[in-house]
Design a protein around this nucleic acid. Structure first.
Lengths: 184, 184
DNA sequence: GTTTTAGTACCTATCGATAGGTAGGTATCA
DNA sequence: TGATACCTACCTATCGATAGGTACTAAAAC
């Protein structure tokens, strides 16, 4: 397959990511995915034999994409405020992309009910994101006195609030609040 | 039925609340509820004809219970810090009760996929909670400079983080952070 | 006082639909 | 030939919901 063509596997992951973010793990079936791609559900099984495989792959890809987008948490040429801006920007972008919640908030909220591999992948998402944030904010410039847990919680919660209320302003307000704190 | 006996209707609501908080709206079936109460699913339909009816009733009861527990947001004999403590305490208690997320965060995260009446009830939960918080913090003593949206977002997000990570410390940390801010 | 009615609260049986998954098959290509 | 990537057909299981039924009770009607 060409470099410019999205593989079928990635197409499935795209649909699944969007579907899980909108409706949760049980809210999207293999048949839904198949229909969206004009194929049959057995073919989805070909790429991902069990739903747990798919869920895990979706979360891992989402995790890697986010951390790639965030970049290094300790690059010498930037401030903590720069990094915090990038984190907040990633959340804004994720909301804008589909008016939906963060994948791992949706899944994490019902974590104990998830298949084990998916649960572990969600756990790793948060561990890595919190570590990134702690590292990003551990420099000398004290961009904010809020902890990494607090920032991630606020962003995740604000995203859900905006989805629940159908209004981006809640996330915007919290995002501004977090980044303006870094200016004060 | 006696005042000390829980009605069948309330038993169903209890099971549904717990089930939805743990597994989301699609994660709990009428048959699950029936099995938990040693009855048949048609009997659940007797009390709540459609799943939408049940979802709405669960959210409304949850909303009323929380706001009752929070009490008046503007009683003269207390400080803003008292009220913030009460809000944070309610979240702590909710987590402790079942190691699960806030009902309306779980539902709100996938709000557009919910039946309309459930979605509206979730919307009303957040509207009322934010209004309560704004009112509680609108006195002269400036207990915190965080907005109501920020506080609710942080608490909701932290609760989900604790569920996802299987560790109460995340919620504890954010809760302490919010209430210690009010002391400074 | 007895019978009828209406309401409550459950049940059995069933429907159509959906869901994860499997076995066996076909077509293509290197 | 083997690998890849799809398909048909089917399985078991589950789900929201419905129709018709039973049992009980209190109140109304006779």
């Amino acid at each position: 397959m060409g470099a410019d063509t999205i593989s079928r596997r990635d197409q499935i992951l795209d649909i699944a990511e969007r579907g899980y973010r909108r409706g949760g793990f049980t809210g999207l079936s293999y048949r839904d995915i198949a229909a969206a791609l004009d194929m049959k559900s057995a073919s989805v099984h070909y790429h991902f034999p069990h739903k747990e495989d798919l869920g895990k792959a979706v979360v891992e890809r989402y995790t890697n994409n986010l951390l790639d987008a965030l970049g290094a948490p300790d690059a010498a040429a930037e401030t903590e405020a720069d990094r915090l801006d990038r984190l907040v920007g990633a959340y804004r972008a994720a909301y804008t992309e589909g008016d939906s919640s963060c994948l791992c908030a949706v899944l994490g909220a019902v974590s104990p009910q998830l298949p084990p591999a998916v649960q572990e992948a969600v756990n790793r998402f948060f561990s890595r994101l919190i570590l990134w944030t702690e590292t990003a904010l551990s420099g000398a410039t004290r961009a904010t006195d809020l902890t990494a847990s607090h920032i991630i919680s606020a962003l995740q919660g604000a995203m859900i609030l905006s989805v629940a209320m159908g209004d981006a302003r809640y996330l915007e307000e919290v995002a501004d609040n977090l980044t303006q704190k870094s200016s004060s």
